[in-house]
Simulated scan of single mutants.
Amino acid sequence: MENLFSIIEREIAIFGRRAEAIRIAYLNHKEIDRSTYLLLRLLLDEGPLAIKSLADALHLDISTASRQTAALEGKGFVERLSDPSDARVKLLQITELGQNQLHAFVVSRQEFYAKLLEDWNEEECRQFGESLARFNRTIEERRLEREKSE
């Protein structure tokens, strides 16, 4: 009999690979990849943020966050504005174009997953979503615990 955690480890590895492959093959929004989605979603949910806050929230180094946000700025998805409390600090804010692109992407993904899981009943989908959310919270809690202990 296979060890329970062996199954989980293997299935998470397969999930990561297949989720990216299916995103590339079936989702139409080629301008929005995972990092773009996460950056835009964070700006939409949290409002304007400084680059350091963005980097910290997404566990990126500042140079990576700067590169990614510069690309989004070039596409017109985000814009820079001065922090009202300190004009030396620049904040990033999602633009209307960015919001529209993000909304279309989210709707497309939701439709895709609804079709993919059409054979699952509502309760199975709810349980799966809740389990994924709990799993993600656990990962973040463990990461923060480890950070504090170092």
Rank of each mutant, 00 (worst) to 15 (best):
L60V: 02
E46I: 02
L91P: 03
E2T: 14
L97H: 12
T36L: 04
H59G: 02
E73V: 02
I7N: 09
E96G: 04
R80A: 05
C125L: 08
L72C: 03
L116E: 05
Y26L: 13
L4D: 11
S85C: 00
L132R: 10
K75I: 03
Y26C: 13
K52E: 07
E147T: 07
E145C: 04
G98F: 03
R143H: 07
R137I: 09
L39G: 00
K75E: 14
A21R: 14
L102Q: 04
V78R: 01
E147R: 09
N136Y: 13
I62D: 00
H103Y: 15
A65Y: 00
R34G: 10
L43T: 01
E123W: 07
R23I: 04
E31N: 14
R137D: 13
A21Q: 15
L60M: 09
K75N: 11
L40D: 05
G74T: 09
R146Q: 08
L54W: 00
Q68P: 00
S35D: 14
R126V: 09
V78C: 04
L39W: 00
Y26S: 11
E73R: 11
C125P: 02
L144T: 07
L102C: 07
R134C: 13
E79M: 12
A25C: 10
Q99T: 14
A71M: 08
K90D: 06
R134N: 15
A55E: 00
E130I: 11
E140Q: 11
R88D: 10
E111T: 10
L81H: 01
R17H: 13
R137L: 13
S6H: 15
N28I: 07
V106K: 08
S131N: 12
A25R: 15
D83Q: 03
I94E: 02
K75F: 12
E141W: 09
Q99F: 09
R10F: 14
Q101W: 10
E2Y: 14
S63M: 08
E145N: 06
L58F: 05
E73Q: 12
